[in-house]
């Protein structure tokens, strides 16, 4: 008998893009080490801050501009973060990788728009720049484009909670669901998607939004002879603590961006992301 958990373990998300905490830390730091030493080179810390900022604020603003569904935003952030597990922002500037991720995520999630429509509305972005990077992006993703997110399990929990929890009325549960939904989409910026399953993330989001409802629901429907509620709760709490990330301040971002521009200028790169694919 193949269980749903077995199915998830066969997904590319689990096989290729799920890690332990240590593995993830190593992956995030590695691209920075591959860049030749330079006095203006960004530190791992600075790179991560910049990536976080782009993943959170910039993806959101581009997605809002084109009224793209939250599923596309979640997938775009996931693609963006995966790209920078292989390359440094000093190799490919996030300014161009970001719209490429949104454009490609829109295709992968059935929300296609033409490249001209897309670029016409974005300042300083040429169709050729994005189309050149699209292939590199897909290759860097190891040709996997399925991003499972917590929205599907959340929807299941939401339906289930309406029958299990009689202490909360439907309006309350709707509001819990809506808040948890936006939390799940925002959580793609954090590391949880590389460390936990979509179901665990959905539960952690419910816990963050309304601890009482989540705890009651879990106690009533997930405790049994074959499951350990305590163990599950510990796991969910671990996930919850990493769900929301602190974004760098505007000043910090400005400082890092400036440094990155000077790095590009000084190393003689003609501009962001015009360099050819690295061969190794």
């Amino acid at each position: 008998m193949v269980t749903d958990a077995d199915l998830y373990r066969r997904s590319s998300q689990y096989q290729k893009w799920s890690f332990t905490k240590d593995q993830l830390a190593e992956l995030l730091a590695k691209p920075n080490r591959n860049v030749p030493p330079h006095e203006l080179a960004l530190t791992v810390q600075e790179e991560q801050q910049l990536i976080l900022y782009y993943a959170a604020e910039q993806v959101k603003s581009v997605c809002q501009q084109f009224k793209l569904p939250s599923q596309v935003r979640a997938t775009a952030i996931s693609f963006f973060r995966k790209f920078y597990m292989r390359y440094s922002v000093m190799e490919y500037h996030p300014k161009l990788i970001l719209p490429t991720c949104v454009f490609f995520a829109a295709k992968a999630e059935n929300a296609f728009m033409s490249i001209t429509t897309f670029c016409d509305s974005l300042a300083k972005t040429e169709p050729s720049q994005i189309l050149d990077l699209e292939f590199l992006l897909f290759k860097t993703l190891e040709f996997t484009a399925t991003v499972h997110n917590g929205l599907r399990p959340l929807h299941g929990f939401f339906l289930d909670m309406q029958t299990v929890l009689d202490t909360f009325d439907r309006t309350e549960l709707c509001s819990i669901h809506d808040k948890a939904k936006s939390l799940i989409v925002d959580s793609f910026v954090s590391d949880v998607c590389f460390l936990y399953t979509p179901t665990q993330i959905a539960l952690a989001a419910l816990m963050e939004v309304n601890e009482l409802a989540a705890t009651q629901y879990m106690a009533q429907s997930m405790d049994g002879p074959n499951t350990s509620l305590d163990r599950l709760l510990t796991l969910i709490h671990g996930c919850r603590q990493q769900l929301v990330v602190n974004l760098p301040s505007q000043e910090e971002v400005k400082g890092i961006s400036k440094k990155l521009s000077r790095y590009y200028k000084d190393t003689g790169s003609e501009g962001p992301a015009t360099k050819k694919q690295r061969t190794n």
């Binding site: 490249i115 189309l131 292939f135 897909f138």
Partner: peptide
């Protein structure tokens, strides 16, 4: 014109 074909993706 629009990069990688949707069908292929």
């Amino acid at each position: 014109k629009n990069g990688l074909d949707m069908t292929a993706i």
